[in-house]
Design a protein around this nucleic acid. Structure first.
Lengths: 145, 145
DNA sequence: CAAGCACTTTACGTTAACGTCAACCTCGTC
DNA sequence: GACGAGGTTGACGTTAACGTAAAGTGCTTG
């Protein structure tokens, strides 16, 4: 989590219909402000599976969405393994057996519990930030001006 | 983030007045379900500064609160360095000069922006979990109950 | 007093998530 | 045909956040 207050460089990841576009690794990298290395790494970890055109990787809508979800998961502190767990099961769903699906439901419940906890954490953290903020301003004011 | 749906073992970190208690490293560790090693590591990283009684570390209320805040920060994906940044500046506040305080305010704003972003991420993530959940149940049903 | 338990320091090991080369293709173009 | 801008595969390096094992200290308890 080294993201500073960066507003939004590069051609923002979500824009218009976007239809059936294809992307090179560099394009995707700029869109999401990550390095190509990162994207290749995610592929190696089983989170992406772009098609090839000769040697080059060709990314399509599906891949872009996956990358987006992956990065969102990361911002929420999920590990790549956890993210893959959901993403892969999601793909395996259509022909999944009952046990697999039950397992998926469990995982989902777990993630959701996690999110709820984070919401509470955010609430508390906010209050503390407010508190510190108040004190800091107070001291500043008492410092003349 | 390997926390499962663990309800709350050990003597929960927050209970009553708690007044002026002191804690050993082991007690604190059980309270928050971390290892003593973790607590020592946080100290080494400048996040805690317990007093000593001979060789042993003695933790007081202040330390317990700090540990609590630290772990909360971690659950939100902050690095120990980021957490220290705020915690230490908070302590240096009373006699802080204007520049330091301004810097602190900036950092706070940054963290807050981060939290807001996470709120949005959680919202989106929730929707997606709901979606996957729905589909899974659908498939399950179509599998002959 | 030996045993056990909780604590201590020191130091090396481990895992995740990339960064950083090096060495190589493959275009379009000057 | 040299060249620069992208792309590719290794393979090794790095950082954060601990884990783990070794070896020692100090109390209290049978």
């Amino acid at each position: 989590m080294t993201q500073s207050t960066t507003p939004d460089k590069a051609s923002s990841p979500d824009a218009l219909p976007r239809q059936h576009r294809q992307y090179t690794i560099g394009e995707l990298a700029r869109m999401f402000e990550v390095t190509p290395r990162t994207i290749r790494f995610y592929e190696q970890e089983g989170l992406l599976a772009p098609r090839r055109e000769g040697q080059k990787r060709i990314y399509r809508e599906k891949d872009r969405v996956r990358l987006k979800l992956t990065l969102r998961g990361k911002r929420l502190g999920f590990s790549l393994a956890e993210i893959r767990e959901v993403v892969m099961m999601y793909d395996a769903m259509p022909d999944g057996n009952a046990r697999q699906l039950q397992r998926l439901l469990e995982i989902l419940a777990d993630k959701r519990a996690n999110l709820e906890r984070q919401l509470e954490d955010i609430r508390l953290m906010r209050m503390e930030l407010d508190d510190v903020d108040d004190r800091a301003r107070e001291v500043l004011r008492s410092l003349g001006h």
